[in-house]
Simulated assay, not measured.
Amino acid sequence: MNTNTLPAFGLGTFRLKGAVVIDSVRQALELGYRAVDTAQIYGNEAEVGQAIAESGVPRGDIFVTTKIWTDHFGGDKLVASLKDSLVKLRTEQVDLTLIHWPSPNGAVPMAEYLGALAEAKRQGLTKQIGISNFTVALMQRAIGILGTAEIATNQIELHPYLQNRTAAAFAKRQGLHVTSYMTLAYGKVLGDPVIQAIADAHGATPAQVALAWALQQGYAVIPSSTKRANLESNLKAQQLRLSEAEMAQIATLDRGERLANPEGLAPAWD
């Protein structure tokens, strides 16, 4: 069983650039967020680092996650690329480093890039390591290489319209933690009548319902927003409890609608 502790709630920064991401991170930290998720490919690590440095919140109180891009998987490149990320993020160590996508077409052997990631941890560049967008077959191989205890999480697309049950159930059986990204499906679920009705019953927002649904299943969530009111509102999802009947209603919404499926990058999904 994985004993690593990850914050259940964090701020995502995908698609946020420049002053927009600085503002989002700054406001989130003011509101009480203490976990921030970025990635090399987002092109915003320097801005995230700036916002954290200028926030007044001690670095030790903030859980920072970044992700290694596929171009940097070669055993000689990964550690160097993470050191570059640390400079941009203005920190000597991140809390979690993930492999962003499995190597396309296995161009770099998994043992090589996961081995390099483990080496980054040994060097103290990152406290924890993990994976993202890994299918059941890929998780099995990763566990074989690193062992479950070394894999802090598998960050996967997971929302009411793509409940990713095969991968999530496998992870749960293995004691492997899951982080849900795109929990709001780019906002698509916010107009869903089932979610809206549940929100109305609780005096909550549809976003809070979707986030609470994921949290209640034990997943971590990392919603993003550029609006202070939404950042504040999303945080309150942690206090919302849905009934078994409401959870069952949301379970019926699964339609396998995958939104992150980049050609040439995505694995053969479960």
Rank of each mutant, 00 (worst) to 15 (best):
M1Q: 13
T3N: 13
T5H: 14
L11R: 05
R15A: 15
A19C: 01
A28W: 08
R34E: 08
V36C: 08
V36N: 11
T38E: 07
Y42K: 02
E47S: 12
E54I: 07
V57N: 05
G60H: 12
F63C: 11
F63R: 12
T65D: 11
G74K: 15
S81R: 09
L89T: 02
R90E: 11
R90L: 02
R90P: 04
T91Q: 03
Q93T: 14
T97W: 02
S103D: 14
N105P: 00
N105I: 00
N105V: 04
A107V: 12
L114R: 04
G115R: 05
E119G: 00
A120D: 08
G124Y: 05
T135V: 06
Q140K: 15
R141V: 02
G144N: 11
L146F: 02
T148I: 14
T148M: 03
T148W: 02
N154Q: 06
Q155E: 15
L162W: 14
A168D: 12
F170R: 01
A171H: 03
L176A: 05
H177D: 07
T179A: 14
S180Y: 09
K188D: 15
I195C: 05
D200P: 00
G203P: 02
G203W: 00
T205C: 04
A210T: 07
A210H: 09
L211N: 02
A214P: 01
Y219F: 15
I222Q: 10
P223T: 12
P223G: 12
T226H: 01
R228S: 13
N230I: 00
K236S: 12
E246M: 00
M247R: 13
G256W: 03
E257P: 01
A268M: 03
D270C: 10
